[in-house]
């Protein structure tokens, strides 16, 4: 059986309506109205041990509700959920002993105290033996380069340093399953790379299953073998990122540096089969579908009609593709 099995998970929340305006505020004193929000509307998936899966979707799509159910914090209204053979919320204590969770926007470290103190507290919380604790600590300190940070009070750490420590804190008990909720949010480029590298190594060398939710498409591209996209409480697409985006991102982009000034209308009239999306000075951006017009043919067309200084074919930026995908999926 797969490590995580989820079948037809459903969850609704009751939310109090709050309307703007003084009069409505008064009215709210007497009577409050509620709306039901269907956060999960029949979600099913399986994840095998050792996978590194990206979980995508716009805010409010049901990502964190799913994660909360998987980690045993929240009960679903309906559906089946088994993680490592357990029903998370029924055997919470045994379950959480084997999972790690990192929230990018929240800290689990004691703000005013040196990092090592928080680690030692976690040792006691998870009842780790001294030998195990020391072994794991040594390893994470080594790979995350924390040696110089352990004695520093958390409040003095930079965001990137702190995130490395958060990761370490979530791994001290050697979890088999790791949930990462926006682990790179707000980090500088270098820290992002360190975090990404670490997650990749952890997954490859220890076989830790990782579920990653993020809005950073570079994270997903760099790490995830497989992604699931959720919207309005349903899984709308799943598979390799490339396969999912191929449909919406069939098109490539051709950037041409022209020698001379032309109007948009003129260029459009001269280049059928490709769409001019942008003209910046002498730089023209075309989107085209390689299935309909092959790149050499398009380039030949253009160079026959214009003086061309330079040209470049690229994939569309991944963020644009995803937002287009969301649009196509109506989420």
């Amino acid at each position: 059986m797969a490590q995580i099995v989820v079948q037809d998970l459903r969850k609704a929340f009751k939310v109090a309506k709050r309307e703007a305006g003084l009069w409505n505020a008064f009215r709210g004193l007497v009577k409050r109205e509620y709306t039901h929000v269907q956060a999960l509307d029949g979600v099913s998936f399986e994840i095998e041990e050792g996978e590194l899966v990206g979980y995508l979707g716009p805010n409010g799509a049901g990502k964190s509700t799913t994660i909360k159910i998987l980690s045993g914090i929240l009960l679903p209204d309906e559906g089946i959920c088994q993680v490592m053979g357990r029903i998370p919320w029924q055997e919470r204590i045994d379950h959480v002993r084997e999972i790690g969770v990192v929230f990018g926007q929240r800290s689990q470290l004691w703000w005013d105290l040196p990092v090592i103190d928080s680690f030692e507290l976690l040792r006691d919380i998870y009842r780790l033996s001294s030998a195990d604790y020391r072994k794991t600590l040594e390893k994470v300190v080594d790979t995350l380069e924390l040696t110089d940070l352990l004695e520093v009070p958390v409040r003095q750490l930079s965001l990137g340093q702190r995130m490395r420590c958060e990761l370490a804190a979530s791994l001290l008990h050697n979890p088999k399953l790791l949930f990462l909720d926006e682990p790179t949010i707000g980090l500088d480029a270098v820290s992002k790379l360190v975090v990404r590298d670490f997650v990749k190594t952890l997954n490859e060398e220890q076989g830790t299953t990782v579920i990653l939710t993020t809005h950073d498409m570079d994270d997903i591209e760099a790490l995830c073998s497989r992604v699931m996209i959720i919207g309005r409480g349903k899984i709308l697409a799943r598979g390799k990122l490339k396969d999912i985006t191929r449909e919406v991102a069939r098109e490539r982009r051709l950037v041409v540096e022209l020698d001379g000034d032309y109007s948009k209308e003129y260029i459009r009239s001269q280049v059928p089969g490709a769409e001019l999306v942008k003209l910046e000075g002498k730089q023209a951006h075309f989107d085209f579908d390689p299935a309909r017009i092959s790149p050499p043919e398009l380039i030949a067309n253009i160079s026959a009609r214009f003086q061309v200084r330079d040209l470049l074919i690229e994939n569309q930026p991944i963020d644009e593709v995803i937002s287009r995908l969301y649009g196509e999926l109506h989420i």
């Binding site: 709050r18 003084l22 505020a25 008064f26 709210g28 004193l29």
Partner: peptide, 12 residues
């Protein structure tokens, strides 16, 4: 004044 009232009203 208005803002203060609205704030208070929220917590009936």
């Amino acid at each position: 004044m208005r803002l203060r009232f609205m704030l208070l009203m929220q917590y009936r």
